[in-house]
């Protein structure tokens, strides 16, 4: 392997990671508070989850295609890619956070009320901590999905490891494709392992 390829793998991997990190940051910032709001609103919850489920089924390449011509959010580049990736990352985090909060034992919640905790204290001190393992499980699904889907985002100019794949397909150059696919797969596996470890650490034994 020549030096130029190696350094390109490193720099595109970093770009890939950045893309993934930004996506997950935004998705968490939207999905976790969203889940907190939806936890107390059953009707709205059905609508939002239904919509998110549909969004999830749109093939990623098609979604990038839809977003491109849109004003403000469209166009070639990272921003469009991040928006599309966020749409995919949102659902698992939202759903798992909801599952975690709604799964808190009714007796535990009642006990919190009986002790004179306010709703905010119950949320921060009881519901969210007890939901953490489930939230991390959702984050894990979102992370693995995003690392994979982000390779496709190179088609709309997002950069990252997908650049190798796009180039490799265009030039029918198998090693180029592998130079993108292998590090992406390794990244996904590593992230999966790391988050699984955290999830285990945080779950009550």
């Amino acid at each position: 392997m020549n030096g130029r390829l190696a350094s390109e793998i490193v720099s595109l991997s970093l770009e890939h990671l950045t893309l993934v990190a930004i996506t997950l940051g935004i998705a968490m910032a939207a999905a976790i508070p969203g889940a907190v709001l939806l936890a107390r609103r059953a009707a709205a919850r059905r609508w939002v989850l239904g919509f998110a489920n549909i969004a999830q089924t749109i093939p990623s390449l098609a979604l990038f295609g839809f977003l491109l011509p849109l004003p403000w959010i469209g166009g070639i580049g990272k921003r469009t890619a991040v928006i599309a990736l966020c749409l995919y990352a949102l659902l698992p985090i939202l759903r798992n956070t909801l599952t975690g909060i709604l799964g808190v034992d009714a007796g535990v919640r009642e006990s919190a009320v009986a002790m004179g905790m306010t709703r905010r204290q119950i949320l921060w001190q009881v519901e969210l901590p007890l939901a953490v393992p489930s939230i991390v499980a959702g984050l894990r699904i979102a992370t693995v999905t995003t690392i994979g889907t982000a390779t496709i985002a190179a088609f709309i100019g997002a950069g990252g490891l997908g650049v190798f794949i796009v180039r490799g397909i265009a030039m029918m150059d198998k090693p180029q494709i592998l130079a993108g696919a292998v590090p992406a797969a390794a990244m996904a596996l590593l992230a999966d392992e790391a988050l699984e470890w955290i999830e285990r650490k945080l779950s009550p034994a």
Binding site: G107, V108, S111, A112, A114, P204
Partner: peptide, 12 residues
């Protein structure tokens, strides 16, 4: 001070 039937402790 409320002693709940079956304790109702916070598991975390």
């Amino acid at each position: 001070g409320y002693v709940i039937q079956d304790a109702g402790l916070f598991p975390h």
